[in-house]
């Protein structure tokens, strides 16, 4: 594992050849898609506008708890947290 990780880091080191000091980092492509490819119809509503902050139904507890490794039906149970 250590040998693999070193080989990968050596390979990644070639990014140091590039001078990108003045380039803004890009975290999410959708933040720039609109300015890259203007579309009037989309510009009016936004590329990915967030929904209104109103509660909507979510998953029922019972089917979610059914998948838990250990549960009392209401909570997830885990092994002892503070050992003695």
């Amino acid at each position: 594992m250590g040998r693999d990780l070193n080989a990968i880091l050596d390979y990644i080191a070639q990014l140091n050849e590039l001078d990108v000091a003045n380039v803004q980092p890009l975290a999410q492509i959708s933040e720039v898609v609109l300015e890259m490819t203007p579309d009037v119809a989309v510009a009016q509503v936004g590329e990915t506008t967030l929904r209104d902050d109103t509660p909507v139904p979510c998953l029922e507890r019972a089917p979610v708890m059914q998948e838990a490794p250990e549960t009392d039906g209401s909570f997830f149970k885990v092994p002892q947290v503070i050992g003695r």
Binding site: L15, V23, P25, L26, I29, V32, M36
Partner: peptide, 24 residues
């Protein structure tokens, strides 16, 4: 976790995001 760790974040993760913009 290594590329996100405090001492290496700029050298790897931030740099990766900058090169991502150059590639786009």
């Amino acid at each position: 976790t290594y590329v996100l760790s405090a001492g290496y974040y700029d050298a790897y993760y931030r740099k990766g995001q900058q090169v991502r913009r150059v590639l786009a």
